[in-house]
Amino acid sequence: MSADLRLVLFDMDGTLVDSQGAITGAMGEAFAAVGQVAPSREAILSIVGLSLDLAIERLTPDMDAATRQALVEGYKSSYTVSRQAAGKAHSPLYPGTADMLAALNAVPEYLLGIATGKSQRGLDAVIAAHDLTCFVTRQSADHHPSKPHPSMIHTAMSETGVAPQHTVMIGDTSFDIDMGRAAGVTTIAVPWGYHQVEQLNADHTLENFAQLAPLLQRIWKA
């Protein structure tokens, strides 16, 4: 483990990109395709961050397995089609995200990474759409148990050689913060995402991304 390097991990949906319209739209089309009424917007956003299979299961506890699997496949198909049609407008960056990432990436000892409930294909598409080449470790739902299991963070720390006390996890949902807590890293919540920030009980809370660099300096006493 390096004593000098610092690892800054971000969730994607609801933290770096505003994908709520894309998610609720794809979910609505998936439910319609199996002849079902989609859950409310609030219910759909409440499961953002979980792996897709688990998210669908949470939304449909009484549904049979075959229909549930059709929902999973329908969501994937709808989301992909809409992403290809809309490009970067499909999941736009939140205000200040690009400047914040550029500033942190310019700090030599900072390593940036992603820990997301997205599939690898979905993650790669967002990174390509917004030219987010700054992430040196990219953990997705395809290769890990669903959040809040700490596997994504453990793997990111292993890949970068950074210790837990030198790692932060930044997210907008309880799944992100609980994952960070389970991994033994410092947690930072953002209030513009999909869960009520007051209920997350993170170690720190941002009001905007301009506050992140000074906060990291205080956390690591740089």
Rank of each mutant, 00 (worst) to 15 (best):
G21T: 11
P191M: 06
R58V: 06
N105Y: 12
V197E: 02
A163M: 15
A115E: 00
G14K: 02
G184W: 09
V126S: 03
E198L: 09
N208I: 08
V8E: 00
A213K: 02
P39N: 05
V72H: 01
M27C: 15
L93R: 04
V34S: 02
H149P: 00
Q120I: 08
A65I: 11
Q165R: 14
P95R: 03
D4S: 15
G171R: 00
S82N: 15
G35D: 10
Q165M: 14
I153Y: 05
G14F: 01
L7N: 01
E207M: 14
A102M: 11
P148M: 04
Y94C: 09
A128L: 06
T80P: 00
L123A: 14
T137R: 05
A156Y: 06
S91W: 07
R83A: 07
N201A: 10
A182K: 03
A32Q: 11
T133I: 08
D13A: 06
I44K: 08
Y194A: 03
S151N: 12
R138Q: 15
Q217L: 15
V72G: 03
A156H: 08
K118R: 09
K76N: 11
A182C: 10
G49E: 02
P145S: 09
Q20K: 12
A3M: 13
D53E: 15
H166D: 10
F31V: 07
D18Q: 12
A22M: 12
E29D: 15
G180W: 03
A189S: 08
Q196E: 13
H154D: 15
M1G: 13
D18P: 07
G184E: 09
L215N: 01
T137S: 14
A106C: 08
G96P: 09
F135K: 02
K221V: 15
I153G: 00
D18R: 05
S146W: 02
L215H: 03
D64N: 13
R6Y: 15
A55F: 02
L123W: 04
V162H: 04
V8T: 01
M169G: 00
A129K: 00
H144P: 04
L101T: 10
M100H: 03
V168C: 11
A66W: 12
M157C: 14
Q84N: 12
T24H: 13
V34Y: 00
A128F: 03
S174W: 09
P108T: 05
S2M: 10
S40L: 05
V37A: 13
P95C: 12
D64H: 06
S78L: 08
S40D: 09
D18K: 09
A125I: 13
E109W: 09
I188T: 01
I219S: 04
D99Q: 14
S119N: 09
Q196F: 01
A102W: 10
E73N: 14
T186E: 01
G87D: 08
N105P: 04
I153M: 04
H149I: 02
A213G: 06
A182S: 11
R6L: 12
H90S: 11
D142K: 08
A156F: 10
